[in-house]
């Protein structure tokens, strides 16, 4: 596993399964009287948010606090950034405060990569969404939720999503959630199909490890999970579809469409939902919709990521090709 989490594409299958398994154990913490572990005591985690986000930020904050880390929230609004401070100067300020991890959300694709590789800071960098590029922890929590629903909490342990068919529908063009999910779910062995109007597909999507379709009704009957993406009005400068009603009619999920899905199939939504647009209230409130579970899963998955990146001397070794020659580190022995 790498030291930073910038892109879901950086994760190997074994890395991803380890994160999901760790999250599964950590999810059990919520049944306990004290929902806290001492593991990251004395570590400082900074959430650096240049874009608005409530759920992702509080999810990371809850995850870090449950691991006993100190959390500093840094949002661009009302901070030195609004006075014109550069990313570099902000980063060096955080470094000087002794941040061990920086969780960054930024409107510019590539900002977390820049932060991680520029040498400005030593902290581990976790991407919480950058532009239209990546949102790896969202993909991890989606994979966690699907695995739990399709294989069961215990049945899923150690297993990937081989052979499961997952459909992602909506605004693919602006969606870092779609990109991250295509990378992660295909790494985990799932067959991913992207569905949406042709105008909402990015150039080059044909090269992604997934199928592309413009017809939701044709794909629904052979899907184990259907993920509905939010139509991101705030990122849409031009017109990508004629009217919202037409979009809802062709690509929205309503009760009639849901009935055509296999009985075991689930409906997912990363939130926030536009009820009546990509998903009707009937579907959103049905037991097959996992939107609320996804929020809970988010805390567990982010705890797992924080633990694996910060908990040890370095992230777990093994699966990724080792950068250092074998034996460079003194072998440690465990008795049992």
């Amino acid at each position: 596993m790498k030291r930073h989490l910038i892109s879901a594409a950086d994760l190997t299958r074994d890395d991803a399964v380890l994160i999901l398994d760790t999250a599964e154990e950590l999810a059990r913490l919520s049944d306990r009287p004290i929902k806290k572990l001492p593991t990251l005591r004395g570590r400082t985690v900074v959430t650096l948010f240049f874009e608005d986000s409530t759920r992702t930020r509080i999810s990371f904050e809850a995850a870090a606090k449950r691991l006993s880390a100190d959390v500093i929230n840094f949002s661009a609004k009302g901070s030195s950034v609004s006075k014109g401070e550069s990313l570099k100067d902000t980063a060096q300020t955080l470094e000087a405060m002794g941040a061990d991890a920086v969780i960054i959300r930024h409107g510019a694709s590539g900002a977390p990569y820049r932060l991680a590789t520029s040498g400005w800071i030593d902290a581990a960098v976790i991407n919480a969404g950058d532009g239209t590029h990546q949102h790896p922890t969202q993909a991890l929590l989606d994979a966690f939720t699907v695995r739990r629903r399709l294989l069961g909490p215990d049945g899923g342990l150690g297993r990937d999503l081989s052979g499961r068919r997952i459909t992602i529908t909506g605004d693919i063009l602006h969606s870092r959630v779609a990109r991250s999910n295509v990378d992660l779910l295909s790494t985990l062995g799932a067959e991913v199909t992207l569905v949406g109007p042709p105008t909402l597909f990015p150039v080059g999507a044909e090269g992604w490890p997934c199928e592309i379709s413009y017809d939701l009704d044709a794909v629904l009957p052979k899907s184990d999970a259907v993920m509905m993406l939010r139509v991101q009005r705030e990122r849409m400068g031009g017109a990508f579809f004629p009217t919202e009603r037409e979009y809802a009619r062709r690509y929205g999920l309503d009760g009639a469409r849901m009935a055509r899905m296999p009985a075991h199939a689930v409906v997912m939504h990363p939130g926030p939902m536009n009820r009546g647009m990509e998903i009707t209230a009937e579907v959103a409130d049905s037991p097959r919709c996992t939107a609320v579970e996804q929020v809970t899963a988010g805390v567990s998955v982010r705890m797992a990521v924080l633990y694996l990146l910060l908990g040890g001397a370095q992230p777990p070794a093994g699966q990724t090709p080792a950068a250092e020659p074998r034996g460079a580190r003194p072998r440690t022995e465990e008795n049992h």
């Binding site: 398994d21 694996l308 990146l309 040890g312 001397a313 777990p316 070794a317």
Partner: peptide
């Protein structure tokens, strides 16, 4: 914990 790579959790 901080002397070794992060390890997998048990039940």
């Amino acid at each position: 914990l901080r002397l070794r790579p992060a390890r997998a959790l048990a039940r």
